[in-house]
């Protein structure tokens, strides 16, 4: 192919999408790095300020508490979402007649946006449970869970499990049904119990599904915004802000663009590093078939 023709082909097939990709994603991403080292106020950057925005971010005690809260949220939701999702996948791949019917129920919350799920649960925690607690004298729910930082954390976890376990369940189902039946039959003939088959045969053979599901939950844990804003809104007193909401509030509510962007860059680095570590570790457990 001549050079002119190959350039023409590139423009026809790749030109528009790549241009949009660069304008929408690459340019703001690169700008963001640059702005985080300047005195940017949202409109113009007059001079470079070195790491000032970063030191300011790390001197902000609220940022530290957000980082801690986010880390805890990511770890706990990662473990629980995947444990529940794997359990659901085992239920709906068993020999039950009702398995398709059950699968629909587990999957439906996932279809609905996080904001809508969040406000549904806001009603449950703030109104429905409180009303029932008054009526039946349940001490545990008399005061709304969303008024207390620790309980609000668990409220966030519950809604996140409800929201994402259905999706991860599909990932695990795909892994479980990809295992050849003769391998499982062979293990049963050898006298392995169902539990033994699960841990020694099924889980090692579907390690790839775990890599994917763990990666997806890790990423969505760090990026969680919708449920956070709709369920707790960061309250009480901004103690339940996950990092996304924290950055949003910094920039768009308080107008701290420089430090907001420095925090956003830190978030990116943390997410990239965590994902890299997780995928490297998970890959080690994958069996070559």
């Amino acid at each position: 192919m001549t050079r002119a023709r190959s350039i023409k082909k590139f423009m026809k097939f790749a030109g528009v999408p790549l241009a949009i990709f660069i304008i929408v994603l690459v340019v703001p991403f690169v700008n963001g790095f640059y702005y985080s080292f300047t005195d940017w106020d949202g409109f113009k950057a007059t001079k470079l300020v070195g790491f000032a925005n970063y030191t300011e971010s790390f001197e902000d005690p609220r940022f530290w508490s957000t980082l801690k809260f986010t880390a805890l949220f990511v770890v706990v939701s990662l473990i629980l979402v995947n444990a529940v999702a794997f359990g659901l996948a085992l239920i709906v791949t068993s020999k039950l007649k009702s398995k398709n019917f059950l699968r629909t129920f587990f999957f439906v919350p996932n279809l609905i946006g996080g904001v809508i799920l969040g406000v549904i649960w806001q009603f449950i925690f703030n109104s429905a449970l409180v009303a029932l607690a008054e009526k039946y004298d349940w001490e545990m729910f008399k005061e709304s869970w969303l008024q207390d930082t620790n309980k609000a954390f668990w409220a966030l976890i519950i809604v996140t499990i409800w929201q994402s376990s259905g999706y991860m369940m599909i990932v695990y189902i795909t892994g479980l049904i990809s295992i050849e039946n003769d391998v499982i039959e062979a293990s049963q003939i050898d006298g392995a119990s169902p539990v033994r088959t699960l841990f020694s045969i099924k889980i090692p053979l579907m390690a790839q599904a775990f890599t994917i599901a763990l990666f997806l939950t890790l990423r969505s844990g760090f990026m969680a915004y919708d449920v956070n804003v709709a369920l707790t809104g960061g309250g009480p007193f901004r103690t339940t802000e996950l990092i996304s909401l924290h950055i949003f509030e910094d920039a768009f509510a308080e107008g701290d663009f420089g430090t907001g962007q420095a925090k956003a860059v830190i978030m990116f680095l943390v997410v990239a590093l965590a994902a890299l570590v997780q995928v490297t570790i998970s890959k080690r457990y994958e069996v070559q078939r």
């Binding site: 703001p28 700008n31 949202g42 990026m223 950055i247 663009f257 907001g260 956003a264 997410v271 994902a275």
Partner: peptide
């Protein structure tokens, strides 16, 4: 690019 969270570029994105 799929690893980049939207939040990481949201502020310069809106400015642009």
């Amino acid at each position: 690019s799929m690893i980049v969270p939207f939040q990481a570029l949201m502020i310069p994105f809106m400015a642009l």
